[in-house]
Simulated scan of single mutants.
Amino acid sequence: MQTLTIIRPDDMHLHLRDGDALKAVAPYTARQMGRAVIMPNLKPPVVSVADALAYKARIMAALPEGSAFEPLMTLYLTDQATPALVREAKAAGIVAFKLYPAGATTNSDSGVTDLFKLIPVLEEMAKQGILFLVHGEVTDPEIDIFDREAAFIERVMKPVLAQVPNLKV
């Protein structure tokens, strides 16, 4: 029999928040995890490279001395995102953009209202190899809450991927 021991796993979806919550959670996470993809839906959200770098600095300051933990930073995708922002993010080491449809979840008031208007941004993400992390649900009140993810896949995700097939989701 073979065994596999994962000594320093990665957390692919981490909410550290900010302030006291960040200071409380980051040391525990760093004790167990090697890296983590940091979710950007703070108040206010992490929408610029400067925001992400400042947030990363706060995370690093909250870690125990000598910690090898690596926060993998993301940006909160908004209607104002541009291909230039994608290129700037890539150059700064940002690994992903996170989609929150407006009004869908915690701190999503700044979220995307129409993903199809951001096709040029998604094309640049595909070109740059930046990940597209998705909170996938529609917010149409006519759709039952238990069907929102399925409706998102059919109405939004499949058509977007047909237009940007190389997008890393």
Score class of each variant (00 low, 15 high):
residue 166 N to G: 13
residue 71 P to K: 00
residue 111 G to T: 03
residue 28 Y to R: 12
residue 116 F to P: 07
residue 132 F to N: 00
residue 121 V to A: 02
residue 10 D to T: 06
residue 4 L to V: 13
residue 129 G to K: 09
residue 5 T to F: 12
residue 154 E to Y: 12
residue 156 V to Y: 14
residue 30 A to L: 07
residue 63 L to W: 03
residue 103 G to N: 04
residue 147 D to Y: 03
residue 164 V to N: 06
residue 113 T to G: 11
residue 119 I to H: 07
residue 114 D to K: 11
residue 86 V to R: 00
residue 21 A to E: 14
residue 48 S to G: 00
residue 148 R to E: 13
residue 54 A to C: 15
residue 99 L to T: 07
residue 71 P to C: 02
residue 122 L to Q: 12
residue 48 S to C: 11
residue 33 M to W: 14
residue 152 F to S: 05
residue 161 L to A: 00
residue 168 K to E: 13
residue 65 E to R: 12
residue 155 R to S: 05
residue 81 A to K: 00
residue 93 G to D: 06
residue 26 A to R: 02
residue 116 F to M: 06
residue 23 K to A: 14
residue 41 N to V: 06
residue 49 V to N: 04
residue 133 L to V: 15
residue 70 E to P: 02
residue 141 P to I: 02
residue 119 I to P: 02
residue 68 A to H: 07
residue 154 E to C: 07
residue 31 R to T: 07
residue 127 K to I: 01
residue 70 E to W: 02
residue 82 T to H: 01
residue 76 Y to R: 14
residue 25 V to C: 13
residue 61 A to H: 10
residue 17 R to E: 15
residue 56 K to D: 12
residue 47 V to M: 09
residue 20 D to H: 09
residue 45 P to A: 06
residue 46 V to R: 01
residue 121 V to G: 00
residue 132 F to V: 01
residue 45 P to W: 14
residue 28 Y to H: 15
residue 168 K to A: 11
residue 95 V to Y: 05
residue 85 L to T: 02
residue 132 F to C: 03
residue 27 P to W: 11
residue 40 P to F: 03
residue 40 P to C: 04
residue 8 R to Y: 10
residue 8 R to V: 00
residue 90 K to E: 14
residue 124 E to T: 01
residue 76 Y to Q: 10
residue 77 L to V: 14
residue 45 P to Q: 09
residue 26 A to C: 15
residue 22 L to H: 06
residue 122 L to H: 03
residue 154 E to D: 10
residue 122 L to D: 07
residue 8 R to A: 08
residue 145 I to F: 10
residue 90 K to G: 05
residue 35 R to N: 10
residue 60 M to E: 09
residue 87 R to W: 05
residue 81 A to R: 01
residue 14 L to Y: 07
residue 31 R to I: 13
residue 169 V to S: 04
residue 82 T to P: 00
residue 103 G to Q: 07
residue 162 A to M: 12
residue 136 G to C: 01
residue 103 G to M: 05
residue 155 R to Y: 06
residue 68 A to F: 09
residue 54 A to D: 14
residue 28 Y to D: 09
residue 127 K to N: 14
residue 47 V to T: 11
residue 48 S to L: 05
residue 13 H to F: 07
residue 109 D to M: 07
residue 106 T to C: 08
residue 89 A to M: 04
residue 47 V to Q: 10
residue 48 S to M: 07
residue 82 T to N: 00
residue 146 F to D: 14
residue 57 A to N: 10
residue 115 L to Q: 07
residue 54 A to P: 12
residue 80 Q to H: 11
residue 64 P to H: 03
residue 93 G to L: 04
residue 120 P to D: 05
residue 131 L to R: 04
residue 96 A to V: 01
residue 73 M to E: 06
residue 29 T to V: 15
residue 22 L to C: 01
residue 66 G to Y: 10
residue 33 M to Y: 13
residue 37 V to E: 13
residue 147 D to M: 12
residue 18 D to Y: 10
residue 65 E to D: 13
residue 41 N to W: 06
